[in-house]
Amino acid sequence: MTRRAGLLLAFAGLAHAAAAAAQDAEPAVDAPSIVTALTEEEVRISSNFTGAKIVLYGVAKGLEEGDDVVVVVRGPVRPLQVMRKSRTFGIWLNGRPARFEGAPSYYATASTRPLDLIAPPNNLQRLSIGADHAPLRAVGPRAAEFAAQIAEYRRAIVRVKESGGLYRDEPGGVDILEGGLFRAAVNVPPGSLTGRYTADAYLFRDGSALAHKSTELRVVKVGVERAIHSIAHDRPILYGFAAVCFAVVMGWGAAQVFRRR
């Protein structure tokens, strides 16, 4: 799908949803609402994948001066093993791993202003908006020990993920256009896990969320990447034999080609 076509479709979807929302909202005239659409609902990881940039468009009905829009994109949640380095005999070794659950593999926020100006921490935490508010918890045999240091580990997770582009926080990442139309860029870097992502848009007024809309985004591997990855994990022994056969044929074949010349 070309970018232009994607954009058109996104707008078509938006118009349709806006119309539907308008009908739904008929009884309570003043209740604000949000509709959103993505320029692409599927990010395809192929062999030339160096990251994808898609745009979330939305309409906030009943948007008033001073309101804020927050867009949160969350990737699939996976357990994490975090290790603190320590110096042993002059060498930096990884310490014993701390296990955590609840951290999204990908987490991006974009907003009209910095989050702490939009709403008090409690309200953000309840909606788990902001990487600092991901529902992280220590698990495993030494959970109690690590739970005590969870704030430090949380900061480390956010920092490391941010350096890989998997966590991002962009205050000012939401542009408000005319008539309650807004947009936010969503960057999906290489190293993003495949699976279902959610893109949530919130309308904030006076520190609380008045309206919310969730859209789904899929990240999939396609083509050769997908074939290789799925065979490697689903049929690992077959994969190993295929790798060996391939190596033998290549090594032997190349030598034949060179010998003939």
Binding site: R78, P79, L80, Q81, V82, M83, R84, K85, G90, I91, W92, N94, R99, S105, Y153, A156, I157, R159, V160, S163
Partner: peptide, 13 residues
């Protein structure tokens, strides 16, 4: 031996 810029590493088990 170089002091790492980031003291934490992580992986998905």
């Amino acid at each position: 031996v170089r002091t790492p810029g980031e003291m934490f590493t992580m992986m998905s088990p």
